[in-house]
Design a binder for these strands. Structure first.
Length: 924
RNA sequence: GGGCCUCUAGCUCAGUUGGUUAGAGCGUGCCCCUGAUAAGGGCAAGGUCGGUGGUUCAAGUCCACCGAGGCCCA
């Protein structure tokens, strides 16, 4: 018998089944070089979509969280791009700040050098080099992920132009009168005489005094508040006592005196001190609030409520020194207490501290104070305690909390009728938060946050460019002075380094005199800005300066409600009275397959580099889009394995489409109305799909797009449409209506499928696009220069959709009947079966309508609309409908494999094939 | 310890305003095909909705508490 396979139109394509992404993707990246610029050119004048990039910190390689974040952004940008929008995506980096400073210092230490020796300017240069190095590293890594953006001109917070804009922003906030100078306790090393950041201190065991002290109440005879402390030296700075409002407190009466302390700590107090007494009264903490007592070193102070009081140690009454403790400071701020700290930079007591400790260092003062308390009968008990205590990371000595002057942006000073807090809260209401609870989260943070401390006593950052008049102390913060300095920074290749290089005279406008006293003698501020002010002003440099008022979208992890979203909001509202964004989208964090956070110690970290080298960036991108990012996002081996399967399905579906289009030209296309009804059905279905796809993309619900596409490929296409279509594609002559009609649909399907997945499977879509272009040379060179089709009413036949919905269900019923035959080995391939359908009149009429195509639709050789079949089943879906199946009679056509009666043959093959062979001979 | 959030089959997700036997795809098992072939197809088995207790004629869907986990703060 002849080899009939050669007379069939079997699929042919160079689009390989094996993706081999890790080695193929780099060549696609090569093709994309310059693509961003071409897109900008092509989309000029189109409506703009602005996603403003939050800058990652330029330190280390990217991790999976970075990848998640950037891919999400990329999907959104590419979607709007494929919708015909103009995009403008400028990636950025956060370059200043402590981690880099510490890293550089570590490197210096290895060379036995210190930053003090080198001086600010040289040290800053080293930091700049360090940041630059990692900007390059991360840039390469982001590009490898397939992220589309202006990688030629990203924004760096250390660029002179950026720094200059930031200085101008600071000037605006000063001008609005929102910047104030006041004291705040910071970690302080009394040996290095420097402030330390939280991240810098190291915790070691330290032995300290442990004492119970009594504070006599002013209005109740012989009654004392009992406090416990390990830092007696802070008692001279005592300004209050904190209680937990909801805790229970007792009045403990001994033979001579009455003590107030928390009920929960009574037992441990009695045990430690040996003091015994009788509880004569119990009260809630809130009833103690407002009581006055005599502070051991001066003044009458009060009891305040505080959320920081704990009942694990002490007495539940906490001695409060706002100048020497963070919580003390926060609570103190709330009640208008001074951050009082009579201690100089060497940790020595100064006036107005009591005379007997003046000049002594804080730790030396401890025993003196204890002795003094003892003499004044205020000490109840004295002991020692070993506990974990913060130490200086450089000299390893214990550090202290000490209030020092800092710059703040005030949340509560009214400016043109409203405070920053009020205005920010109003703006929050106008922004669209995705998911919605983000609004609540940031609003409650803004409602409760203290003033924004923007000064840091560090080296690597943007200077706070104000001057102090040496003569009268006036702070020079005029707009023209900020502008002058900004100009100098912008014009210098050294950027903000010039602030530290040049003298006051060089930095100030020529001949500048103090507006208060007329002096010409100034001293510049040495503090630098909080890095959150750097990134918080990115909107000014990246958007406003380039004529864009607001971003359409900010998109970061949910931790940025406290971080970048808030810093940007406050900076923008302070400067421009409005939010810098119209919408804010947040995503969750990556966790492992058990939902646990990724950590080195758990050994469950998955790196993007690892995924890329093993599976390719498209797999990582598919992962991003497959999960609901509003919650925690899981990642692990099994999930990746499933994604590999999903990827193959989508890829092979596209491959099959392309494979059957090798002889098709767009001019062969048949108009929708004249297409075969099955092809009209699939295109109608496609319009429904498109409608949902667009809806979900617009709502940023990518996992719904993913499920839609995945199911479409496997359910409607692979197992139904394409499977049934094979007969028509392979058997009929190349130029026949049957084949051309099918190809018309396949071409449409390919275009839609490729563009729909392009935002996430960018590499694969581009690769497939190359093949599609060999079919239609009019297509643009990149899929990203094309547009994703919109659902079209003209290509949607409602009646067909309704009919097919039923036909598909009947198909399932028939398959259950065939399955029974298969179990008995009566048939193997469905072609060996004959199907009967009967019963329900309405449905039988429907089936008659599609009569001559029914057997193809069911992939069987014959269908009869009457009762019959060896095995019979009742419909799973329809009342009174039945399906039966039996082995078909007749002979298999060696060409099309369907079974026919002897008389339906013409020679070796069936009549249909004979005709096709004839036509084929003419066409080929 | 506080604020915000999550918890539906092995995995990823659906489940309008509370209302019939909780859905899909994948994976799994069994089977078929060998003309998408390191592909394709068919059938089937899997959850009582994190737990407990309420509200209700009726709860995965509302309330309370507990548990596991995440982010932020302390």
């Amino acid at each position: 018998m002849k080899n009939y396979a050669q007379t069939l139109n079997l699929p042919k394509t160079d689009f390989p089944m094996k993706a081999d992404l890790p080695s193929r993707e780099p060549s696609i990246l090569k093709k994309w070089e310059g693509l961003y610029e071409k897109i900008k050119e092509a989309r000029k004048g189109k409506p703009l979509f602005i996603l403003h990039d939050g800058p990652p910190y330029a330190n280390g390689h990217i991790h999976i969280g970075h990848a998640l974040n950037k891919v999400l952004k990329d999907v959104i940008i590419k979607y709007w791009l494929l919708r015909g929008y103009h995009i403008d995506y400028v990636p950025g980096w956060d370059c200043h700040g402590l981690p880099i400073e510490q890293q550089v210092e570590k490197e210096l230490k290895a060379q036995k050098k210190s930053k003090e020796e080198l001086g600010k300017v040289v040290f800053r240069r080293l930091c700049k080099d360090y940041a630059k190095r990692f900007v390059e590293v991360q840039k390469e890594e982001f590009i490898r992920l397939g992220i589309l953006g202006d990688w030629e001109k990203p924004y760096l917070t250390m660029d002179p132009a950026y720094q200059a804009q930031e200085v101008r922003e600071l000037g605006r906030v000063f001008k609005a009168g929102l910047v104030v100078r006041s004291k705040k306790p910071v970690y302080w090393c009394i040996y290095d005489k420097t402030a330390e950041a939280e991240a810098e201190v190291e915790y070691y065991e330290k032995e300290d005094p442990s004492i119970y002290v009594k504070f006599p109440l002013t209005k109740e005879e012989n009654t004392y508040l009992v406090i416990w402390t390990t830092t007696p030296w802070t008692l001279p700075a005592n300004l209050g006592v904190m209680v937990g409002e909801d805790y229970e407190y007792v009045f403990l009466k001994t033979d001579t005196e009455t003590y107030v302390l928390a009920k929960a700590l009574l037992e441990s107090f009695e045990k430690t001190t040996g003091i015994k007494g009788e509880v004569i009264k119990e009260v809630k903490g809130k009833e103690l609030v407002g009581l006055e007592y005599k502070s051991p070193y001066g003044g009458t102070n009060k009891v305040y409520p505080s959320e920081f009081v704990e009942l694990s140690t002490g007495t539940g009454l906490v001695h409060m020194a706002p100048g020497h403790g963070r919580e003390d400071y926060i609570v103190g701020l709330r009640y208008g207490l001074e951050p009082y700290a009579p201690v100089d930079e060497e940790g020595r007591f100064v006036e107005p501290a009591p005379e007997f400790i003046r000049g002594k260092r804080v730790f030396e003062a401890n025993p003196l104070i204890i002795q003094d308390l003892k003499e004044r009968a205020l000490l109840l008990w004295e002991g020692k305690i070993k506990h974990s205590y913060p130490h200086c990371w450089r000299c390893k000595n214990p550090v202290i909390f000490r209030a020092t002057p800092q710059w703040f942006i005030s949340m509560d000073i009214p400016h043109e009728g409203k405070t920053l807090r009020e205005r920010a809260l109003e703006e929050i209401q106008k922004v669209k938060w995705i998911p919605p609870y983000g609004k609540n989260r940031i609003a409650s943070m803004v409602e409760n946050r203290p003033d924004w401390c923007i000064s840091r006593q560090r080296y690597w950052g943007v200077p706070i460019t104000v001057f102090y008049c040496k003569n009268c102390g006036h702070v020079v913060a005029e707009e023209e002075v900020f502008e002058r300095v900004a100009q100098l920074i912008e014009d210098s290749s050294e950027g903000a380094d010039i602030w530290f290089e040049k003298s006051e005279k060089e930095l100030l406008p020529e001949g500048y005199r103090c507006p208060v006293c007329g002096s010409e003698d100034f001293k510049k501020e040495e503090d630098i800005l909080d890095v959150w002010f750097d990134s918080g002003s990115s909107h000014a440099f990246v958007l406003r300066k380039r004529g864009i008022q607001k971003a359409d979208l900010y998109l970061e992890g949910s931790d940025q409600h406290r971080g970048w979203f808030q810093a940007s909001l406050l900076e923008s509202v302070a400067s421009y009275k409005e939010a810098p964004y119209k919408a804010v989208l947040t995503h969750g964090f990556t966790v492992d397959e058990q939902g646990r956070k990724m950590s080195k110690s758990l050994g469950n970290v998955v790196s993007p580099q690892e995924v890329i080298s093993k599976y390719g960036a498209d797999l990582l991108r598919l992962w991003v889009v497959s999960e609901d990012y509003t919650e925690d996002i899981r990642l692990g081996k099994n999930i990746l394995q499933r994604l590999v399967e999903d990827y193959k399905k989508i890829r092979n579906t596209i491959r099959f489409l392309l494979g059957n289009l090798y002889d098709f030209k767009p001019s062969d296309a048949i108009p929708f109305e004249r297409l075969h009804h099955f092809d009209r059905w699939v295109l109608s279905y496609l319009q429904e799909l498109l409608e949902k796809v667009h809806r979900h993309y617009e709502a940023y619900e990518f996992h719904r797009v993913y499920h839609l596409v995945r199911n479409f490929c496997s359910v409607e296409l692979s197992s139904l449409y394409l499977d049934v279509l094979k007969d028509r594609l392979y058997v009929y002559a190349p130029g026949s209506f049957e084949r051309r009609s099918a190809q018309t649909a396949l071409f449409e399907l390919a275009k839609v499928l490729i563009t729909v997945v392009a935002p996430f499977l960018s590499f694969t879509a581009e690769e497939a696009w190359e093949h599609l272009r060999t079919i239609d040379q009019n297509l643009p060179e990149s899929v990203f220069l094309y547009e994703m089709p919109l659902p079209s009413e003209e290509k949607r036949d409602e009646g067909l959709l309704r009919d097919y919905e039923k036909l598909i269900k009947i198909r399932e019923d028939a398959y259950r009947a065939i399955e029974l035959l298969r179990k008995e080995k009566e048939v193997n391939h469905p072609y060996e079966a004959k199907v009967y359908v009967w019963g329900n009149k309405e449905l039988i009429e429907l089936l008659e309508k599609y009569g001559d195509y029914l057997n193809y639709l069911l992939s069987v050789s014959k269908v009869e609309l009457s009762e019959g079949g060896k095995h019979r089943v009742s419909s799973e879906y329809f009342e009174g409908l039945y399906a039966g199946a039996e082995r078909v009679e007749g002979k298999k056509c060696p060409r099309c494999w369907l079974y026919y009666e002897e008389k339906e043959f013409e020679g070796e093959v069936c009549r249909r094939c004979a005709k096709a062979l004839e036509e084929r001979a003419v066409q080929v």
